[in-house]
Design a binder for these strands. Sequence first.
DNA 1: GTGAAAGCGCTAACAG
DNA 2: CTGTTAGCGCTTTCAC
Lengths: 363, 363
Amino acid sequence: MASRSGKKGAGQSERPARLIDVAHRAEVSRATAARVLGGYGFVGGETRERVLAAARELNYSANVVARAMRAGRTQTIGVVVADISNSFFSHATRAIIDTAAKAGYQTLVLNTDDDLAKEIDAVRVLVEKRVDGLIVVPSSPTRYDHLVQEGELAKPLVLLDRRVEELHVPVVCTDDRGGARAAVELFLARGHTRIGLLVATAAARGGPQAPQPDDAVSTVHERVAGALEAIDARRARQPAIRYCRSTIEEAREGALALLTHKTPATAILATNEEMTFGVLAACDELGLAVGKDVSLVSFDDTPWSRAIAPAISVVRRPVYELGHAAASALIREIRGEGRSGEILLPVELIDRRSVAKHAKRAR
Amino acid sequence: MASRSGKKGAGQSERPARLIDVAHRAEVSRATAARVLGGYGFVGGETRERVLAAARELNYSANVVARAMRAGRTQTIGVVVADISNSFFSHATRAIIDTAAKAGYQTLVLNTDDDLAKEIDAVRVLVEKRVDGLIVVPSSPTRYDHLVQEGELAKPLVLLDRRVEELHVPVVCTDDRGGARAAVELFLARGHTRIGLLVATAAARGGPQAPQPDDAVSTVHERVAGALEAIDARRARQPAIRYCRSTIEEAREGALALLTHKTPATAILATNEEMTFGVLAACDELGLAVGKDVSLVSFDDTPWSRAIAPAISVVRRPVYELGHAAASALIREIRGEGRSGEILLPVELIDRRSVAKHAKRAR
DNA sequence: GTGAAAGCGCTAACAG
DNA sequence: CTGTTAGCGCTTTCAC
């Protein structure tokens, strides 16, 4: 006698009902019960009703981990991001969760703080958990051993927002290069010649620095490259660049450096939210008015960037679409419906009030 | 012959190595291999080394789903929030993920958009996935059947940010009542008598409304109640209240209503980020200066609320701590280390520049 | 300190 | 259309 909850009561007994308990109560075999509860195969109408009734009466809840073990699929994906509390990642993740859920997958979220060691650990955990696929925002542009996993447990993988050299898996990115180029072209068109780039990168060490850290992720390269393209096309003066970690404080220092140089920048491209606040703080400190003394374009549109005065001009990235595309690509890959190559989403320069025509600046 | 990867090669064979493959290669039993790989029981030093070496050579990755099935624990928790892309939830979730990870749990995240049907579904999925516990931000203050789950599959559960009447499980909240009270006390102390409350709630239907929707979550009640406490204590004039869904557009309409009333509000408490932007937009439209013509206090501190001009006074909630406390309580419960009651975290009123002394306002 | 064997709950051949 | 049965990979008594 294997049954335990199949007595008479409505399921108040010791342990949760299992498939076999439902089968007994409905007086069918486990296979039949499994077919109706699992939603596959063919079962007669009356039998199906009996099973459904029994399941309801016993308050049956399918044990998905047993199913996963048997089927070899967990219907779970893993998302590895730098920091879910960051607005860019949280919006992209929202899209991923939604898209995955619609396709029957749940989503495990792990943070790396852009630390390779944490990323390696996260991927290991996810692989051990036997997720059906991973979406990773890689913290290193070159290190990817943990993502290919010699041997046979390589899982479907999609990279989000950043490329990894030599790793040929689907990547979903935005056209950051084009966005930076457009921003700088706008500066140039408005007569600015002394352009500053305030670039966030986890690879920066010990305060704002001029040389590009060589382990900066692809997004950093792209944005700088885009800005330089615009400059070179117009044979304009080379920009001043400061790389710093993504904190408002470091950004403020970086912006201060750009703004107090002997040939101070009159226009600054800030590569994310923190950098933008840094510029705002520095301008405030220096008594400089944004949109007048200092022009500013920032990456990523947010409610506040259009609500504040002056409204900030931004390079808008389609963040939800980015996450959606990544999840779609991953699910396609999981289902063996063909691999995507690189997906490049267009960005949009929204010119608001923070970019002024260049005029001699009072110091 | 059960083995398949245990041949000679370094694990390049067809399928991922299993425990038994490692055992064979190390020339020990499955039990012994399991002991060293699972990190329990006693195994001789030399034997342990052999097993570890074999695992490495075969690129062994523990199958955690098999382990979960056997052990009855998945080392996974579920988090059910309204919207992970919302900054409050994303910060709380970040804390939950971190705290859980430190204790060896991974986190599934699901969104409800404050829709009860989605919440019910999310909980069902999570229970089927056999998570070890759940953290839920309940979308209804009264409906909780899906959370208690008649029968035996009730999982350890902690409520985040919102209470549910009659549901006696651990709840982790912030002192929103006290925060609202403090905000209104500040208005009163500065001489304001016509106070407006702009309250976000998913329960609002069809534009800003005056009566409180009766299925508004506890946080809504608390904030309004706190505001009224301050008013009643000073026998001040009753506030004008507008309830609206959490969008900038509805907030703008609500704020417009408050500001263009025949006795317009001179001070507004906005219960979240969207409400705050709505007030900002309305003031802009009406040509009113925040921090001068209109005073404003907002719930939740953010980088922009201190960066914009004027810097917005806010009721700061300890969001990370909130998530951390919820995860800690849940893990304690999962481990049977005793149940927490209600945890109430203190808030802090940060007075910046958006609350002016009352003066006759030019219309 | 190590091994043998039972079984977690489910699915998928295969047989009828 | 329905039943029988053999595992999925791992842990865990219980012996030795």
